[in-house]
Design a protein around this nucleic acid. Structure first.
Lengths: 145, 145
DNA sequence: CAAATGTAGTTGCTTTTGTCAACTATATTT
DNA sequence: AAATATAGTTGACAAAAGCAACTACATTTG
């Protein structure tokens, strides 16, 4: 019985994976997916984050992250400022070039979604977002059984 | 105006990407994601597919695919049978061991979704699948504007 | 038909991405 | 002060993927 629902959810997951795959083509930018995710997080935490924050949030290996951050710093996309209270940690922030680049990617991604939506009627778009938010609510309110 | 919807859809994409990421933990199997996708396609095309079919369907490099298929063959998971009509092409199929292994993965994945669903009420599950199918319909009926 | 062109798949070489463990430096606990 | 813990770095390596040249077979075209 429940198996029927499981099958339908998995079918949706496969379907939506391919939708998202379509959109991730914006990755033929100069940045890898992981770099974009890092920039995304830094953009949304303008007060600064630490490498450890990113490791937890994005599930990255700390050695790998360390090198990614070195590259981003070499390209002048991020700033690392050593904490005064704790000499082991560094506050990470996008530089203004980093912000510009990130916003450029973000705009491209937005334009791409917009382009796909141009094939839909306005009613469809409203329904689409409605269903999406409904799904999200169901997940977010999960522990209520 | 439309930008508001675009933003909401992108937020959903990020959200759902993380949901799917959770589920793809079943990849700590002995197979890579791409290998599983190949097995999935072969499973769903029991009459056999060619390497070219897989290249188109999964967007793979043909050199890379060639080696993946060699590995799967070495592990006795797939069968390659040269076509009689065209000596260049090979029909690919899961071997019975390949089918067994794939079904094992599939069951694990199904169990994982089931486990997540166990946190939801039955009403939520019904709503969830309803919204998912509604989304899918909107995409599938897209060129109707 | 023979030459040219096209297609399926393979191979060698390289790059990108990611993992693991050992290490340094600083902080915290005992 | 010694032991333990934490943040981040480094070296060595493995896995995943991409690119281009190549082989073998097929199809087209003059």
């Amino acid at each position: 019985m429940i198996d029927e629902y499981v099958a339908r959810i998995r079918a949706f997951n496969r379907f939506y994976t391919s939708i998202i795959g379509l959109l991730d083509q914006y990755l033929d930018s100069e940045f890898s997916l992981t770099e974009v995710r890092i920039m995304f997080e830094l953009h949304h935490h303008p007060d600064g984050m630490t490498a450890s924050d990113l490791i937890d949030l994005l599930n990255l290996d700390k050695g790998y992250l360390s090198r990614l951050l070195q590259n981003l710093e070499k390209k002048r996309l991020i700033l690392k400022k050593q904490s005064e209270r704790d000499g082991r940690v560094f506050k990470l922030q996008l530089s203004s070039k980093g912000s510009d680049d990130f916003l450029g990617l973000n705009n491209a991604s937005q334009a791409q979604v917009k382009d796909i939506l141009s094939k839909f009627t306005e009613a469809d778009i409203m329904n689409l977002t409605g269903h999406m938010e409904a799904i999200r609510n169901i997940f977010d309110n999960r522990p209520h059984k």
